[in-house]
């Protein structure tokens, strides 16, 4: 497994795919640091930011942008193997399908989350150096905020990895992962716009409201800004379930399916 990961790391060092990840991240952070404001992408499902929120903590709360950026490392590691059909070179060597899946899953998880962590901490240092302590929190507070949110991104990358193994084709993987939060957001809005006294419709509306609270965008912001213990625990349970199920579904479907 170590050999496979080493090989993948070598390939990633030659890949141009991650360039976009770093260029977009740098651009986003440049704006944030230059204007002393948090930036990023939003689908409109973010909680209100307290007045005292410092720029770097606000930036972490807006890490939903990384939902889209983390599509890239998983794409580079896994779907390229299927689109180029190079998986068969590996499986026909002394590597079993079990080892292949586990190694790729772990590598994309580690590679993507390390890239995510690196981006956040580089931003923190740059912001601290440029804007000083007025616009940045202490290292301990920033680190705490980052690690409170971190399990959400582990779950996201796990889900991406599962989708990459299930869908295999790069275009399909991109289409599904990119459109998923938009489609979910639309559905939630439809549920929440239901205005009826009937019990069934009220249940649907309640479901919509809960879905909004535990959507990726809301979770990644709310858990950093002002989480209650119960909310945080619920978020972590969701993350654990998503991570474990993503691994299990990906693993068993990959083992069972005939590769062509």
């Amino acid at each position: 497994m170590i050999n496979m990961m080493r090989a993948d790391l070598y390939r990633m060092s030659k890949s141009k795919g991650m360039l976009f990840f770093w260029l977009f991240t740098a651009f986003m952070y440049f704006i944030s640091i230059a204007y002393q404001q948090w930036g990023g992408i939003s689908l409109g499902a973010t909680p209100e930011f307290p007045e005292s929120t410092k720029t770097d903590i606000g930036q972490i709360a807006m890490n939903f942008t990384f939902y889209f950026l983390l599509i890239i490392p998983v794409f580079c590691v896994i779907t390229s193997e299927f689109s180029e059909h190079t998986w068969k070179n590996t499986i026909s060597s002394s590597v079993s399908k079990r080892l292949y899946f586990t190694s790729k899953f772990l590598f994309s998880l580690v590679y993507a989350t390390i890239s995510f962590a690196l981006a956040n901490f580089i931003y923190y240092i740059a912001n601290r150096l440029v804007n000083g302590s007025t616009y940045s929190s202490s290292p301990a507070d920033f680190t705490k905020a980052f690690f409170i949110q971190f399990p959400i991104f582990i779950a996201i990358v796990s889900a991406f990895t599962m989708l990459a193994f299930l869908l295999r084709k790069g275009a399909l993987y991109n289409a599904v992962t990119i459109s998923m939060p938009i489609v979910c957001s639309m559905m939630v809005q439809v549920f929440m716009s239901i205005n009826s006294e009937k019990e069934f419709f009220q249940k649907i509306r309640d479901f919509g409201e809960k879905s909004l609270s535990y959507g990726v965008e809301m979770m990644s912001a709310k858990i950093v800004l002002d989480p209650s213990d119960s909310y945080r625990n619920n978020c972590y349970i969701i993350c654990i379930v998503v991570t474990v199920f993503s691994f299990a579904i990906g693993y068993f479907s990959f083992l069972k399916r005939e590769l062509d």
């Binding site: 050999n3 080493r6 090989a7 030659k14 180029e84 059909h85 070179n89 002394s94 590597v95």
Partner: peptide, 22 residues
Amino acid sequence: ENPAFFGGLTAYQNLKYYCYQK
């Protein structure tokens, strides 16, 4: 079937990737 390698890598880099892997 058909030879399959990473299109963005050179012949040497492709084989180096498999050297690491093996």
